[in-house]
Design a protein around this nucleic acid. Structure first.
Lengths: 335, 335
DNA sequence: CTGAAAGCGCTTACAG
DNA sequence: CTGAAAGCGCTTACAG
């Protein structure tokens, strides 16, 4: 590895001068700078990243807290797309992404791990904010951070407009003539609560009485749970004519339940999802759903962190990204 | 941040002594060691990672080359699962994972990026080995590395037993009574070539003449391409009774084509996939496929790198992971 | 067993 | 504009 010293020797200047030339300092003659830079290029010089960071404390490294095990992580299309967008934005600004692990041997907390690597920012996504220790500590630390699908006034958060997402979807069901519209929602989180609020308000707005039997808890990204809840719903004395499920992926569970009960979608029962994953149009029938703009969410998260690093601040914005109703064929018009 | 110096001052010993105590050196008295360690704990000391790496060149960081944009990256269940398994194994050995970016601004190659961060190992997966510069350079570098779904004698590779995967799947089609078995394979790669070899050998083994019209090129992970190829196949003068598609995900394209041509699976046409993704059992009918053991692949890759780091070597093993035929309902028995 | 010292490769006031 | 020097926080021969 060629070092500053090597270049200095070759050029007959001091190490300090080389450093300045390479860092494009004003504090050095134009000609010398040219000469030194040319030599550095010739020798294939690459700065020693660790030496530089030791001095500058600038690691150019962003941490990702992303639970790929319990929450289906990478397999979860919505979060994966957020991560992709985030990564793209970060890398085009010369930041690298490192996963934050809770280090088993050294028994580090997330925050210790982040400080250890001098992470300059942190993205938290696809994680159980409510049942896992250390996540909120990390987010509330001095490190610029943004949480996806969470709300707080102590750090930045980016999430979809879940209220209007469910409001417009439920309203759409009504407009298609349905009255008995069920909602299998996910575990209780702020996201879920917003969706439930949107669901309930749609009933109010349309002056339709809400049947509490139709509002039941399922589980995000669980085909099995959706399958069970779907069966329960269908076996009700007055089953719903339309059910909104936790997310698109759960459609497989809903399909299976309907199929086993001899019900055809959308003729006997209408179904809607949430997310608009890539395969949503390929379900049979094509799935009506609410699109979450994962790309914009990831990009926005990156921009917040980049801004905070640049300005040496720690912002605490709560940014809501619009959702969009995507009408396809899984909700039948009835009269 | 508390440093060695702070501890040394508090304990009335030298910085060197503190370093030795904390690194559990033999070269120091047991009592002093205890005392120093206790003090370090009290002060909440955390070593400065960058200072240490500057001295030791030990970054505890593994690079991941993973193209999540063009190749569907995280969305690709098979590769995502490999990455998860790899990550788990690495993290339980105290290594972190960082994405390797081709840095736009600084115009770094992959290998430069890897050296820049002093990455101690590299995993390459989900990448176009054949059309992208720098990947092979990186793999052939001095850095311990393993490539997924590639073969080489210059670095380690881990891949599924694709030959037997397709051999057993094709044979299974024959055993179910099919003779006109088509194969929409992916782009030409060593993986694809092995699968084609397995496909062809199955015909030989069973003494069934192979119709070249049934062996056509599609595209991995492309619903659209599969849709088109499927239509072509169905429109043949003598269409196949069974078609093996590139991967399970492509089933959506195959389904759509069959549906549009008024063909029902498996009654009019049988279909098989490859991968055994999580949703494979939930297709209608449940998909017959070949399981790739993504978990074992990822874990094996990690073990190789860990071994190389430990032993300061660079191995070049080519390890084949067994595949398993998973029979479900998408291939109909005919006579 | 303990300390003083050199050095990893870099940056940055500080003189001149 | 250029150089000498100190220092970032750590590790590791080398004396004693």
């Amino acid at each position: 590895m060629v070092t500053l010293k090597d270049i200095a020797l070759k050029c007959g200047v001091s190490v300090g001068a080389v450093s300045k030339a390479l860092n494009d300092s004003h504090d050095i003659g134009v000609e010398t700078k040219q000469y030194i830079r040319e030599m550095a290029r010739k020798l294939g010089y690459r700065p020693n990243f660790y030496a530089r960071t030791l001095k500058t404390n600038h690691s150019y490294n962003i941490g990702i807290l992303f639970d790929d095990a319990t929450n289906n992580g990478f397999g979860h299309a919505f979060f994966s797309n957020i991560l992709s967008a985030f990564r793209g934005e970060m890398e085009s600004n010369d930041y690298d992404l490192t996963f934050i692990a809770r280090n088993s041997k050294i028994d580090e907390s997330y925050i210790e791990h982040a400080r250890h690597r001098r992470l300059e920012g942190v993205l938290v996504a696809c994680v159980d904010y409510y049942n896992e220790d250390g996540i909120i500590d990390l987010l509330e630390s001095e490190i610029p951070s943004v949480a996806i699908d969470y709300m707080s006034d102590k750090f930045s958060c980016v999430y979809s407009d879940n209220y209007n997402g469910l409001m417009s979807l439920t309203s759409h069901c009504f407009e298609m003539g349905h009255r008995n519209v069920a909602f299998i929602h996910g575990q209780h989180t702020c996201v879920t609560d917003e969706r439930i609020r949107g669901y309930k308000d749609a009933f109010k707005k349309h002056n339709i009485p809400l049947n509490e039997e139709y509002l039941i808890e399922g589980e995000y990204y669980s085909i099995e749970t959706t399958y069970k809840r779907m069966k329960q719903l269908i076996q009700l004395p007055v089953p719903p004519s339309c059910v909104i499920i936790t997310d698109d992926y759960c459609m497989f569970g809903a399909q299976k339940a309907a199929y086993e009960m001899g019900l055809s979608i959308p003729w006997h029962i209408s179904i809607a999802g949430y997310d608009d994953i890539k395969i949503a149009p390929y379900f049979s029938p094509p799935l009506t759903t609410v699109r979450q703009d994962a790309f914009l969410i990831g990009k926005t998260a990156a921009e917040i962190i980049l801004y905070d690093i640049e300005n040496k601040t720690k912002s605490a914005h709560n940014i809501e990204i619009p959702t969009q109703l995507i009408q396809r064929g899984s909700i039948r018009k009835i009269s």
